[in-house]
Design a protein around this nucleic acid. Structure first.
Length: 272
DNA sequence: AGGTTGACCTGTCAGC
DNA sequence: TGCTGACAGGTCAACC
């Protein structure tokens, strides 16, 4: 599920609640994608200084390191303030951080998500070391994208999903940005001109920031830290709309498979 | 080296 | 009411 906008919405919803909290305990359910990487007691007494994000990873900055959180396909984080009695954890709450003023729960039915400890001062964590540029940060533009796609023969849609090319893009926003830029998702990355890379970079930024403003996309079960659902899925122009009219030209939206993922596009608007 | 495929795990929905 | 198969927002290791 969660791509950059959903993780950013989660970050914005958690930051005020988590900053300054003292970790008092950890509860782990079934194993997640990767092990925590340290004894749970290692986290006791650590203070949460800041809540950051890199690509699709949420970063809890602690005094002596950071917790790298990934929501996988089905994960969401929920903050439960100690002011109200906490409901019983559900069968899918596989990681809980207990703090002095409440608890943070990771709910993740498919368990493709993870919480990973990374000590300060160590080499960059392998999960983060290879990530490409942040599309919403200053400095990301058509030229950066053009260099990343240069001479690549794989389809541009597939390359956008490669986190080394651009960090944080997933299936929804890759489809949406390509539609907005008028680019055929099947075209080889290396065939996209500099001018079209500029359009694509602009389309990525616009799509992602609009999605953040809308609270992200809730297709099945995404919820922000307060339990609210996003509404960007209603703004999607092609994603999950196979057979429906393209909102721009009225042609039927098509669904194809690329690298074993569904791609939605309008063959009329996206011809180059 | 770059590109493609299978595997991981669970839930949901369509079709019979 | 089952049962089965397809599919789902992601990523990695193992292949050509």
């Amino acid at each position: 599920m969660p791509e950059l906008p959903e993780v950013e919405v989660t970050r914005l919803g958690l930051r005020d609640a988590l900053r300054g909290r003292r970790i008092e305990g950890v509860r782990q359910g079934k194993p997640l994608r990767w092990p925590l990487g340290c004894p749970p007691q290692r986290l006791h007494g650590e203070r949460i200084d800041e809540v950051g994000r890199r690509g699709k990873y949420l970063l809890l900055q602690l005094g002596s390191g950071e917790l790298i959180v990934h929501l996988g396909m089905s994960g969401s984080l929920r903050w439960l303030a100690a002011t109200a009695p906490a409901p019983e954890p559900t069968a899918h709450d596989h990681f809980v951080l207990l703090t002095d003023r409440g608890e943070l729960r990771l709910r993740d039915p498919r368990r493709f998500g993870a919480v990973v400890w990374h000590a300060a001062g160590a080499a960059p964590h392998p999960l983060l070391a290879q990530l490409g540029p942040e599309p919403l940060a200053a400095g990301f533009d058509g030229a950066v994208l053009h260099r990343a796609l240069h001479e690549r023969r794989a389809a541009v849609k597939t390359l956008l999903l490669d986190q080394r090319v651009v960090a944080g893009i997933g299936n929804i926003y890759a489809c949406e940005a390509l539609h907005r830029a008028g680019i055929d998702p099947r075209r080889a990355g290396g065939e996209i001109s500099a001018a079209r890379c500029r359009r694509l970079a602009d389309a990525l930024r616009a799509t992602l920031s609009e999605a953040v403003a809308a609270g992200g996309s809730t297709l099945r079960d995404f919820a922000a830290a307060d339990g609210a659902h996003g509404c960007f899925q209603h703004a999607a122009r092609v994603y999950d709309r196979a057979g429906l009219p393209c909102p721009v030209c009225g042609a039927e939206v098509r669904r194809i498979t690329q690298a074993q993922r569904s791609t939605y596009f309008c063959a009329h608007c996206q011809r180059r």
